[in-house]
Amino acid sequence: MRKKSVSRIVFEIINYCVMFLLTAICLLPVIHVLALSFSSNTAASAGLVKLLPVEFTTYSYQYVAGRKEFWNAVLRSLLRVGIGVPLSMLLTILIAYPLSKESDKFRFRTVYVWIFFFTMLFSGGLIPGYILIQNLKMMDSIWALVLPIAVSVYNVVLMLNFFRGIPRELEEAAQIDGAGHLQTCFRIYVPCALPSIATISLFTFVGHWNSWFDGLLFSNFSQNYPLASYLQTVVVKRDMALIGAGDLQALQNISDRTVRCAQIFMGMLPVLVVYPFVQKYFVKGIVVGSVKG
């Protein structure tokens, strides 16, 4: 080994400091909020809480867990994910399979590609989409949160790039054995592409879980909000009507602030749970999908 020069050592020390700082900036706000959520009202409002809970209590969580609106929103989100993710995946596979064929195997491929590709270039925007949902009488329906985003062209592109990586011989063998397109797709392609399907599913799950604006836009009544939309009104806009005036007494024990922090943490919990799995796959997925194209 060569000996490190002095300037190299200085650089490495500075570099480690910069990296440590960046990591801290990403991690500490979350830890701070977590600490606040487990702190008492008085400690939180006095600004005593830094990175560890002060006067540890789970009152805030008990309060949130006792709220009908919260669980209502959780159920709504679960329903959304339960319908949205499988539906999206099915549609993505069904579109990606034909489009992964070469033009001479599927004549109208180019036409379809342009139809899908054009949606990446141009969109009607917010208001026509909003009026459309109203005209379709889909306001307050779970379908308004699932169907408009069921087809993600970006995911189709990821998927078809994976499909293209599958050896042609497998498909040809299946077809010689008499398999049709549907069978080839679900018996050969899908099992081969399982890791990428898992990746895209996780992304779709996170997308659905985090999506808040459509819930806000396409619901006339707040009881139809999924969790992200509910949190938006409670945590960010601090809508007191949704917290409830009758709870003012309860608010003496637990502050608005600690409850907000508890809800922030509960809102991100599912993402934190799936995050290790997402992280395991996504690097490969992104690089293959977006760069190699």
């Binding site: 549609l91 069904l94 379809y112 139809i115 969109s123 026509p128 459309l132 169907l147 408009p148 797709c185």
Partner: peptide, 18 residues
């Protein structure tokens, strides 16, 4: 196979364009 996805894209992307 493409039809269901195409229908959704036409309805939720192209109709708003119109």
């Amino acid at each position: 196979m493409i039809l269901p996805g195409l229908a959704l894209v036409l309805l939720f992307s192209y109709v708003p364009m119109g």
